[in-house]
Amino acid sequence: MRPPPDNVAVLAAVATFLAKELRVEDPAQAFRVKVAAHLLGGVARGLKVGEALDEQAMGLLAMLLNEDAPEGPLAAEDRARRLHDQQARLSARVLAGDVPPDDETLLQGLRALLASELALSNPRFDLDDQVGEP
């Protein structure tokens, strides 16, 4: 096995270098460097905690679908397939009117689902209920 650093540490270090150290004169290029750092940061977080967040999302979706969570951990491909399938079934159910769209459990569950996605894509996203109010 290769000695450390592992993939997560390398990606995080490159993302930090791009975001905090690299100085680029051209504003358009500088913006693209920021975008690159943001993307790499997202990939690093996915490698580190993506599996755990997928498990959490599958649990939340199972709860909202009123079905049992899968037994035991799934392989990455099976997780992706199951999440895809759960999201499609819940969407269809909501659009068919089986669950009222302002049902508190539904809204809370969906917001928790999005919060776990945002923990990967944008951990600085402000989840506060009062954002932009009044």
Binding site: E104, L107, R111, A115, L118, L127, D129, V131
Partner: peptide
């Protein structure tokens, strides 16, 4: 595309607030 969750969250926040 990663930004989609941000707008979805905001839409649900607004819906919960109105409720």
């Amino acid at each position: 595309p990663w930004r989609a969750a941000e707008m979805e969250y905001e839409a649900l926040r607004l819906i919960a607030r109105q409720a």
